[in-house]
Nucleic acid binder design. Structure first.
Lengths: 205, 205, 205, 205
DNA sequence: TATGAATGAGGTTTCATTCAT
DNA sequence: TATGAATGAAACCTCATTCAT
């Protein structure tokens, strides 16, 4: 007898999140007022505060739920590939897709980080996420080095740079018109792979 | 109230800018109040508004004056190098230094872009700046291809990815502890150059 | 949902009253929210409103039920005493005990009077109660004067002052640490009785 | 050049206090809103918060400034009297006048105590004030005992009861119509003095 | 130029009460 | 009877901006 009740609650919860996300995307976090979300959701202000403790809490929930929807199985496909080269390509494709899908959300995420009253905490969330990807990437490169696919490099460092490129591109997409992420990604990963596969260790000064 | 009036004015101006910068870096733009800046500067509220029209105006001024200090002759050194390889390395070094010096200012710049009531306008400033660098980079790569230093690649795309990596790293530096930008940059540019110099055109699928 | 429905109802009723009393004593009426009472009682908000019309109604009910428990037979013992002196002592003892038992409830009663939307009405309840005691006291003093135990005084006035002292002490008990009401009462009633029994009518200016 | 400015500030300060007091007396503390005080004072809400940190702070200031106006030289006159009897009479007169002048403020003071978020702190203010008076009273009685005016009693206890009577009467005055504080005080102090001066120590059981 | 008191629109949050289930 | 999600008026407070001195 309570199932329909708690389902209704979950629906309202979701409705608020979506209304908030819509407002945040439209006006940014700081310029969105609780009244905006009230108007967008068609609910009452009391209901917002029944479901979320504060505006900051709502922001965090929007961020978390939105972010969870992204890049969930970005990594999961990788296991299906055999060579490190193929795995790296798969990662690149995943990252490119991710960056592309981020369009419109990027500034929201940045603002989330900047505006949150728990900036440190938010930094941690991001760092944890980043580090996870960075470790997978570094492991792939390491694997390639081990099995002779790649020449020896500082896998850790290259992994950071690799990831950074995709996040940078996601940002650029917000204000560079007609940027072609897929093509850029293609060129980028080709060049990196060529570099890794070259037998020239003599490039360094 | 005497001879050096305009000099005193300039000093006050500067004092306000520095106080505002300190506050913005500490608390972000939105969380900084005019009273914070009053307290930080030791001046009065009226004086702030005598020198700057509004809080947004002050942000713009802080942004502009701070930004001017950055990356002034990042590009200028390049002409002293002869080969495209050396030029690319110089660009990488300049970008790494720039990203490193951005530490602490990065979120402010982002917030400037996000919070500004003239978001479109700001986007343009950034786009222009970015494009300028991107064109220089693409030209260098193009030059390398022309004179046989590099194998043929999509120079435009690679230039974007290259720049994006450094901006991404500048962001990471804000919340990844102990990240070594110089080392990462070194590994990155080495790998890219190896890739560009390799005679393998067979990597592409 | 069965036979003892009305008993269960009475139990819930009582449970709410006790939870409300606990909250009121802890935080005062105004600072107590219905949610506090919900938490304290372990019941639901709807149930509270099923049993009581409003927060004010609940306060009235708490006040009434609590007040009924106090000073029920404070006066009733008096008839067992023969002399006015003994009767006055008995009244003093009753008043002292009452004041002592009031500890912790005093501010609640005051707040009930102050916060009630029916302040006038509440004033009457209290006035009636007070006057009742005052009349009994005055009658005792009058009786003492009649039968020669006491010298002539303004019985009405003395009765007011006498009662006032005990109410004042009840208040003091709330914020004067280690006040000994019994001892104070003893000294007080002794002095008053000495004054009443003295044959000196020459003290007045 | 700043004297007129700071004088104007003090005037505004005072104006707010008086407006707040008027509102509090009319509606009680809890039912008074900042908007009420805005309307009553003719000032703006910002000005209220420029002068006082919070509603609670304003309440405290109103309380303090109002209380200071009361009973300032209630004690000071005492030194002009020679005998303990005369001093006690003077105290009684001062207390009666004080209680009388408290009419209309009493419930406000009580509400201040009850509603304050710093109830403990407020208790201290009152306790300190009370204890001060109690000590003076006890000293007078002690003095009377020493010089033979009074018979030996527990001066401490009697002082508490004496004070309590006047505070109780101040409360009664709020809801007992036509109570004659001066007359009651007269009868009360006469009886107490008679009791103190009587040579009968045999009253105790 | 400089000051700081004054302004008030607008923001977040609270909480007594209602009502569908 | 009981539940707890939903309501919304109303409260407190903030803060960019103005202006008399």
């Amino acid at each position: 007898m309570s199932s329909s009740g708690s389902q209704a609650k979950a629906e309202t919860h979701e409705r608020i999140l979506q209304a908030a996300l819509a407002c945040f995307k439209r006006k940014g976090y700081n310029h969105t007022t609780m009244d905006d979300i009230v108007a967008e959701s068609g609910l009452s202000k009391g209901t917002l505060y029944w479901h979320f403790e504060s505006k900051d809490d709502l922001l965090t929930a929007v961020f978390t739920s939105t972010f969870e929807a992204f890049g969930e199985d970005a990594i999961s496909d990788i296991i299906y590939h055999e060579t490190a080269t193929e795995k790296l390509r798969a990662m690149a494709q995943g990252a490119a897709d991710f960056s592309e899908s981020l369009l419109g959300y990027f500034s929201l995420f940045i603002e989330f980080w900047i505006s949150s009253e728990r900036r440190e905490e938010t930094s941690h969330i991001w760092y944890d996420l980043l580090e996870q990807y960075q470790r997978v990437l570094a492991a792939i490169i390491e694997e390639g080095i081990q099995n002779g696919e790649f020449r020896p490099v500082d896998a850790e460092s290259l992994a950071w740079a690799f990831l950074a490129a995709y996040d940078g591109l996601a940002a650029y997409a917000e204000f560079v018109p007609d940027i072609d992420l897929q093509r850029i990604s293609q060129t980028f990963v080709d060049t990196i792979l060529d570099g890794l596969q070259s037998d020239a260790g003599k490039t360094k000064p």
